[in-house]
Amino acid sequence: MSENKKNCLYIVIPCYNEEQVLPVTSGMFLDELNHLIKAGKISSGSRIMFVNDGSSDSTWDIITDLSKKDEHFIGISQSRNRGHQSSVLAGLMEASQYADITISIDCDGQDDIHAMEDMVDAYHDGCDIVYGVRNDRSTDTFFKRNTAKGFYKIMAKLGAETVYNHADYRLLSKRVINELAQFKETNLYLRGLIPLVGFKSTSVYYSRSERLAGKSHYPFSKMLNLALNGITSLSVKPLRLVMSLGIIVSIISFIGVIWAVVDNLLGNTVTGWASTVCIVCFMGGIQLMCLGVIGEYIGKIYIEVKNRPRFIISERTYECNEDKNQ
């Protein structure tokens, strides 16, 4: 295969306060990229694109230094911290201007970098989307492993199409990214949006290892927020469940009213305040829960109609390098 016919690959890597792990994993990414180039599977114009998500440490300085040392390293920086999903999308949209295929992967080195070769092979076999899927969750804590399983089961019950044990390690062709650009959601959940794009897809399985350095920037609160965002962004079934719950509670309440009337006609008196308090608290709790679910959807509508930008790129290493050479 001649050089001009080889596909250009951009590896998109979101980074937030990764000054400890970036010096370790950057060399691993470069080794894999060079391996793929030497194997003739991608062109020499392929690049590793770091996306700085408004880091408060020296992450951006490390990225700019890497870009000066090797042309295969490039970077873009968001104007402020906007979240992991926004950073992945920013990198994909930027890379789609230059690359035929992209692979998104986290910076921490937990995902098997060598699985990229299998992804590229699957692309050459005709797949536009290749999902990186974990073999198991043996490296997770008991709590995280079981909550993750529960989340995927809930998503399936709600009718949202997701890939089990897949995060954001995936290959996308240029035409998939071009179609993805037509999805204008501000509330991003890429794991659910990618399957909606369609096209031929497959999965590559790998074992996930421990984080190589630094601490995770995805605590339970962020994972919970991502899960809620995924559920409410991809499915309206929670609203239907609220309606069903309202109907059931109404039927029970109606039966209760009939019982109270009949009991009163028979001359019996309802004694005690406990039953009254329980009913009031139960009804109040149901109402508040229903209002919360409805409010979550209304809040998303409020954010969506503002049509704010999903990402803002403030700096690019290649612009900096061009300015320096002039």
Rank of each mutant, 00 (worst) to 15 (best):
E3W: 04
E3V: 06
L9Q: 11
I13T: 15
C15W: 03
Y16G: 10
Q20C: 02
V21S: 01
L22W: 01
T25Y: 07
K38T: 11
K41N: 13
I42W: 06
G45S: 08
S46N: 10
F50V: 06
F50W: 02
D61G: 01
I62M: 05
D65E: 13
K68A: 12
D70E: 14
F73R: 00
I74K: 03
S77V: 00
Q78Y: 00
R80Q: 10
R82C: 11
Q85D: 08
L89G: 03
G91K: 09
M93H: 09
Q110G: 14
D111E: 14
D111S: 14
I113K: 10
V130N: 06
D136E: 09
T139F: 01
N146H: 11
F151S: 11
M155Q: 14
A156E: 15
T162H: 01
L171V: 07
R175W: 09
F183N: 15
G192I: 05
V197I: 15
Y206I: 08
S207G: 07
M223E: 09
L224A: 13
A227L: 05
L228A: 11
G230W: 01
G230K: 01
L234G: 08
L234C: 08
V236K: 14
R240E: 14
R240F: 05
S250I: 02
I252W: 08
S253F: 12
W259R: 14
V270G: 14
V277M: 15
I279L: 13
V280F: 12
C281W: 14
F282K: 05
M283V: 08
I286R: 08
I286P: 01
I286L: 10
Q287S: 15
M289G: 02
C290F: 06
L291S: 13
G292L: 02
I294P: 04
G295C: 00
G295N: 12
K300C: 04
V305E: 14
I313Y: 04
I313N: 09
S314Q: 06
Y318K: 10
